[in-house]
Structure formats: C-alpha cells, structure tokens
Design a protein around this nucleic acid. Structure first.
Length: 281
DNA sequence: TCCTATGTTGTATG
DNA sequence: ACATACAACATAGG
C-alpha cells in the first residue's frame, strides 16, 4: 500500500545490510514480481556482491551493490512495492515465510534481507553496469525538487483538460510518488473537488494545487519517511489530516466537522469533504 | 458469495 | 499520435 513516504520508510529497513556481503540469493523465478527482470541474472550477479547504498524516488527503490568479479561491476537492484510489498531484515536461521520472493543472505552479519509481497503487484528490477538503468534514471523529478514548478503543473493540466483532477494527480510522469491517499489529502487541503476537470482551474487554483502537493509530500516524508524503520509499521499522519478520517464509516472532515463523501473517481476510491471541495464555483 | 484494498499497465475507444 | 477510461493482474479479509 505504499506511496512516496512509506517507500522511503521501507527503503531504510534494509540499512542494516549496507556494507555487508551477500553470500547467497534465494528467489522464486516464476513469481510475478520477477516479470520485469531476468531472474537468472540476479542469481548470477548477486552472490558475493556487497551492498553499498540505497535510494528511493517516487515509489521506486534502488539498492546499489558491487559485484564480486575483478571489475567490481556496479549492480542496480530495484524494488517496487506494488500494493502489498514489504522489506524486512531477519536474523539468520529463521524459517522463510509464504510470499517471500527474494532473500539475500548476509551470514557475515548473521541476517537476511527479505522482499515479500503476497499480491505480487510489486516488481524487482536488475541491471549490471555503470550506466543507470532506465527504470531508475527515467523517474520524473520529485515534487519536492526545484524542477517541480507551477508552470510545469499548469502545462500538464492543460494537456489533460477533460480528465478529473484525481486521475491526473495519480500520473507518475508528473506527480511521482503520489498515490491514492496523498492525492485525496492534497485535493482536500487545496479545497478542490476531485472530479473537477483539469482544464477549468484558475491560475490561483493551480498555484494552490502545486503548493499543497509540495507540502503534503514534504510533511509525509518528514513524519513517515524519517520514522524508525525497525518498527512493525510506519506511523500514520496526525489527526488533523484527512488521512485519519477517510476510511472510517461516518468519517467527518477534520476542518468543517461535516460528513465526508466517498465515490470512485478516476478509477479509484476517493474521499472528499463536500463542505470544502465544490464541483462548481 | 461479493465487495473491498495506499499500484501499474495493456487495450479499446474517442 | 494523444487523451481518456477501464479491465486485468493475484490474494486476503470483511
């Protein structure tokens, strides 16, 4: 279920593995999570490699390793968590569990790095070589970066004038890392109805949308992304966020105290506060 | 049994 | 070619 900040939190789960060798790799090559890569390449390159560093961008993580060959070939191990993906570090010797698709054993550190995903919407990616692979280098600039400008958002909305706002906020090529709950949170804070057509926003509304996108992403990264990754679950945002109320039966808007509404918009379950977010202006 | 689920992609249609 | 809408993917839980 992870979006931008939860992905960052999950990336840090494997931090205890950095600086240690991967002695063996265990995987189930027929699992759907290996569809986007060649599982035999993983099995060939990872044994003997050292985990050097990791990074996250949007909903994608990359783990950088150096191979055991004479050339110390740089390796890029990508993980996308899909809906139910999870990373854990487990003390060596404990039994494998169901839906664990990729296990990197680090006996030197008496631990294993585990990627599990029971629904298998997640994906493992892999590349050997100095060049950054497309699945990593091609990710759009972060919404917290200077490249994410009001003008870029305005242009993007203009080209999708007839689509509902909610659908467009989920498009990773402009809003990398934004998922279902963040999109609802942004629209609620910007006081924009999720079904509004992108083409009918005023410049002031576009500015507000941009500002709240940056704010929600930055705050989520601070509250969730920087939390202690050894806890069983990442922390939820505070009570004055829509997040805390959007699933509850009879949930109420934390600002207006009026009932929230729910419907499928842009193909996804969407929650908004009718008292704040109006369709017509 | 039917419905839901914090994601992405392929395909059909406009 | 581009924008838009939606089924499909696989599984568990209410």
């Amino acid at each position: 279920m992870p979006e931008l900040a939860e992905v960052e939190y999950m990336r840090r789960r494997w931090n205890p593995g950095i600086g240690h060798l991967v002695a063996t790799v265990r995987l189930h090559p027929r699992a759907g999570v290996f569809k986007a890569c060649d599982a035999t390449e993983l099995a060939r390159w990872l044994p003997g490699a050292r985990l050097e560093s990791s990074a996250a961008a949007a909903k994608q993580m990359v783990f950088r390793l150096t191979a055991a060959d004479a050339a110390r070939t740089p390796l890029w191990l990508g993980v996308h968590l899909g809906m139910t993906g999870e990373l854990t570090v487990r003390p060596a010797g404990l039994p494998d569990k169901k839906a664990e698709h990729l296990i990197l054993d680090q006996p030197e550190a008496r631990q294993s790095l585990v990627f599990s995903d029971f629904r298998m919407f997640g994906q493992v990616q892999f590349h050997a070589g100095a060049e950054a692979p497309g699945w990593w280098a091609g990710i759009a600039p972060a919404v917290t970066s200077v490249e994410f400008t009001v003008e870029a958002v305005a242009e993007f909305l203009r080209r999708r004038a007839r689509a509902p706002l909610k659908a467009v906020l989920l498009m990773q090529e402009r809003f990398p890392g934004i998922g279902n709950w963040m999109a609802d949170e942004i629209l609620w804070r910007a006081a924009l109805h999720p079904a509004r057509r992108c083409g009918e926003l005023t410049p002031a509304e576009i500015k507000k949308l941009h500002r709240e996108t940056v704010w929600v992403a930055a705050q989520a990264l601070r509250l969730i992304g920087e939390a202690d990754p050894s806890t069983p679950q990442w922390p939820d945002p505070p009570d004055d966020w829509l997040f805390q109320h959007r699933w509850a039966e009879g949930g109420r808007c934390p600002r207006t105290k009026k009932p929230l509404e729910r419907a499928t918009i842009g193909g996804r379950t969407t929650c908004w506060s009718p008292a704040r977010q109006k369709l017509s202006r």
